[in-house]
């Protein structure tokens, strides 16, 4: 027996439902979301669907152009590089290094940033100010310089990129969360909750945090695109992922020797970096405009 609707008035959509409706109204944001979902799937299952292993060298097909060219063959869909490695397979294998590692870095930086940022945002006076200035100093070291410093201490490698990018992303999270918590703390509904007898922990978690998550989400998408670009740039400079690894930035670096007569070894990994950052940015833009009317 079906449920009869007792009340005729419209249901009031919840906050997340409203955000989703505004977000889904924009086709480009949905396209970006699909792109991000595909990238997520690829970074989990890419190695299983790739036709070749990442290091498999086909000696009969060195520097083969992509399949739409006359000299190309469908068996190597996006062509091969100078060692005969299939570029399409390497891209699929590399998604977990470029996109997956970027996601891990952002999640860790977010975790650290939320904790430090909310503690420093809830504090007042000198303590909060000292923390803020230390972070300003960290923030003023660009991510690439931080990476150079980390590489100088520990040597190159993908795990060190994780630390380098993480250290340079965390202050941004801390700063924006600190600022939002600080601003919310001045508002009257917080005073009302204090007068109701809420202790600082309750104020923080039940009163302030629901209003901070929006900022956190937006900051996360921004950080995500920055992290992908940083990891790729470090790979390109040979400070991050090392040579045989199919990380997209280091693929560009490895293709550089044959750039003049085999430009696809550079352009195709570049396009995949561009498309993944674009997808993340489209989602970020969509979220920002969906959240904007509610924040004001």
């Amino acid at each position: 027996m079906g449920r009869t609707k007792l009340y005729l008035d419209d249901d009031i959509p919840s906050h997340s439902k409203r955000v989703w409706r505004l977000f889904a109204a924009k086709p480009q944001a949905l396209i970006g979301l699909w792109g991000v979902v595909i990238l997520l799937l690829l970074s989990c299952f890419g190695p299983y669907i790739a036709p070749y292993a990442a290091e498999y060298q086909d000696q009969s097909a060195l520097l083969m152009p992509p399949s739409w060219s006359n000299q190309g063959a469908v068996s190597h869909f996006l062509g091969t590089d100078d060692l005969g490695r299939d570029i399409f397979s390497r891209l699929l294998h590399g998604a977990q290094y470029t996109f997956g590692v970027a996601l891990l870095v952002v999640i860790s930086a977010l975790f650290a940033g939320v904790i430090i940022g909310s503690i420093s945002g809830m504090m007042r006076g000198l303590k909060s100010s000292i923390l803020g200035h230390l972070l300003d100093a960290l923030l003023s070291i660009p991510s690439l310089l931080m990476a150079i410093l980390v590489v100088a201490v520990t040597g190159p490698g993908l795990s060190n990129v994780f630390w380098a990018v993480g250290i340079s992303l965390t202050p941004q999270f801390v700063r924006s969360i600190h600022q939002t918590v600080h601003d919310e703390l001045q508002k009257e509904y917080v005073t009302a909750a204090t007068l109701d007898g809420a202790n600082p922990l309750q104020i923080f978690w039940y009163v302030i945090m629901p209003n901070v998550w929006d900022t956190v989400i937006i900051q996360t998408t921004l950080a995500m695109s920055a992290a992908i670009l940083d990891i790729a740039a470090l790979g390109f400079l040979n400070l991050g992922a090392q040579a045989p690894m199919p990380e997209w930035g280091s693929m560009i670096m490895q293709g550089l020797d044959n750039f003049l007569f085999a430009p696809w070894t550079v352009t195709i990994p570049g396009i995949s970096i561009l498309l993944s950052v674009l997808a993340v940015n489209l989602v970020g833009d969509g979220l920002r405009s969906a959240l904007a009317p509610m924040r004001n």
């Binding site: 695109s225 390109f236 560009i252 750039f259 430009p263 570049g270 950052v277 674009l278 993340v280 940015n281």
Partner: peptide, 18 residues
């Protein structure tokens, strides 16, 4: 502008110089 914001700068530099 969104595309320009997403473009990896080292790749853009290589393409322009090519």
């Amino acid at each position: 502008t969104l595309t320009g914001y997403s473009i990896p700068v080292f790749w853009l530099g290589l393409l322009l110089s090519l």
